[in-house]
Amino acid sequence: MKKALLTTALGVAVLFTTPALAGSGGATPSAENLNGALLASGCVVCHGQGGDSQGHIPSIDGLNKFQMVNALMEFKSGARKGTIMPRIAPGYTDAQIEAIASEIAGN
Protein backbone atom coordinates (compact mmCIF):
# COMPACT_ATOMS: atom_id res chain seq x y z
CA MET A 1 0.00 0.00 0.00
CA LYS A 2 2.82 2.33 0.96
CA LYS A 3 4.56 1.55 -2.30
CA ALA A 4 1.47 2.35 -4.32
CA LEU A 5 0.93 5.62 -2.47
CA LEU A 6 4.47 6.72 -3.07
CA THR A 7 4.37 5.83 -6.73
CA THR A 8 1.38 8.11 -7.02
CA ALA A 9 3.13 10.83 -5.08
CA LEU A 10 6.22 10.64 -7.23
CA GLY A 11 4.13 10.59 -10.36
CA VAL A 12 2.56 13.84 -9.29
CA ALA A 13 5.89 15.27 -8.29
CA VAL A 14 7.24 14.94 -11.82
CA LEU A 15 4.52 17.30 -13.02
CA PHE A 16 5.68 20.27 -11.05
CA THR A 17 9.01 21.78 -10.28
CA THR A 18 8.83 24.37 -7.59
CA PRO A 19 10.82 27.57 -8.04
CA ALA A 20 12.68 26.78 -4.84
CA LEU A 21 13.71 23.36 -6.07
CA ALA A 22 14.74 24.68 -9.45
CA GLY A 23 17.53 26.59 -7.75
CA SER A 24 18.71 23.81 -5.51
CA GLY A 25 21.17 22.33 -7.97
CA GLY A 26 19.80 18.84 -7.38
CA ALA A 27 20.50 16.69 -4.41
CA THR A 28 24.14 15.88 -4.87
CA PRO A 29 25.99 16.41 -1.59
CA SER A 30 28.70 19.05 -1.91
CA ALA A 31 31.26 20.57 0.42
CA GLU A 32 29.07 23.55 1.25
CA ASN A 33 25.34 24.00 1.03
CA LEU A 34 24.60 26.95 -1.26
CA ASN A 35 20.85 26.73 -1.06
CA GLY A 36 19.85 30.39 -0.72
CA ALA A 37 16.24 29.74 0.28
CA LEU A 38 17.27 27.46 3.13
CA LEU A 39 20.25 29.58 4.25
CA ALA A 40 18.22 32.81 4.27
CA SER A 41 15.37 31.16 6.19
CA GLY A 42 17.57 31.55 9.28
CA CYS A 43 17.78 35.35 8.83
CA VAL A 44 14.03 35.98 8.96
CA VAL A 45 13.62 34.91 12.60
CA CYS A 46 15.31 38.17 13.60
CA HIS A 47 15.04 40.37 10.50
CA GLY A 48 11.47 39.50 9.47
CA GLN A 49 9.90 38.07 6.34
CA GLY A 50 11.83 39.23 3.30
CA GLY A 51 13.98 41.30 5.67
CA ASP A 52 11.02 43.45 6.78
CA SER A 53 11.51 43.51 10.55
CA GLN A 54 8.82 44.13 13.13
CA GLY A 55 10.22 45.90 16.18
CA HIS A 56 13.74 46.85 17.21
CA ILE A 57 15.93 44.73 14.94
CA PRO A 58 16.95 46.58 11.78
CA SER A 59 15.10 45.76 8.56
CA ILE A 60 17.35 44.58 5.76
CA ASP A 61 14.85 44.63 2.92
CA GLY A 62 16.11 48.01 1.69
CA LEU A 63 19.61 46.70 0.97
CA ASN A 64 20.65 45.64 -2.51
CA LYS A 65 22.78 42.55 -2.99
CA PHE A 66 26.06 44.44 -3.08
CA GLN A 67 25.28 46.27 0.17
CA MET A 68 24.21 43.07 1.87
CA VAL A 69 27.29 41.11 0.82
CA ASN A 70 29.42 44.05 1.88
CA ALA A 71 27.79 44.31 5.33
CA LEU A 72 28.05 40.56 5.95
CA MET A 73 31.68 40.43 4.80
CA GLU A 74 32.51 43.35 7.11
CA PHE A 75 30.82 41.61 10.05
CA LYS A 76 32.72 38.47 9.12
CA SER A 77 36.12 40.18 9.04
CA GLY A 78 35.46 42.16 12.22
CA ALA A 79 35.66 45.51 10.38
CA ARG A 80 32.06 46.26 11.28
CA LYS A 81 30.90 46.34 14.90
CA GLY A 82 27.59 45.00 16.16
CA THR A 83 26.00 43.11 19.03
CA ILE A 84 25.33 39.71 17.49
CA MET A 85 26.16 39.84 13.77
CA PRO A 86 29.93 39.63 14.39
CA ARG A 87 29.15 36.25 16.01
CA ILE A 88 26.94 35.05 13.17
CA ALA A 89 28.63 36.16 9.93
CA PRO A 90 31.90 34.17 10.33
CA GLY A 91 29.83 30.97 10.37
CA TYR A 92 29.14 31.27 6.65
CA THR A 93 31.49 30.80 3.71
CA ASP A 94 31.86 33.69 1.24
CA ALA A 95 29.81 31.72 -1.30
CA GLN A 96 27.05 31.17 1.26
CA ILE A 97 26.98 34.90 2.05
CA GLU A 98 26.57 35.53 -1.67
CA ALA A 99 23.70 33.01 -1.82
CA ILE A 100 21.97 34.59 1.20
CA ALA A 101 22.25 38.09 -0.28
CA SER A 102 20.90 36.87 -3.63
CA GLU A 103 17.93 35.27 -1.92
CA ILE A 104 16.98 38.30 0.18
CA ALA A 105 17.99 41.16 -2.12
CA GLY A 106 17.63 39.45 -5.49
CA ASN A 107 20.37 39.45 -8.08
Partner: peptide, 14 residues
Amino acid sequence: VQLLSGATEVEPAV
Protein backbone atom coordinates in the same frame (compact mmCIF):
# COMPACT_ATOMS: atom_id res chain seq x y z
CA VAL B 1 10.06 18.30 -0.28
CA GLN B 2 13.19 17.01 -2.00
CA LEU B 3 12.56 13.38 -1.06
CA LEU B 4 8.96 13.54 -2.27
CA SER B 5 10.13 15.15 -5.49
CA GLY B 6 12.34 12.21 -6.39
CA ALA B 7 15.63 12.99 -4.64
CA THR B 8 17.44 10.04 -3.13
CA GLU B 9 19.99 12.05 -1.14
CA VAL B 10 19.68 15.28 0.79
CA GLU B 11 22.50 17.76 1.18
CA PRO B 12 23.49 18.54 4.80
CA ALA B 13 22.25 21.99 5.82
CA VAL B 14 23.90 25.01 7.37
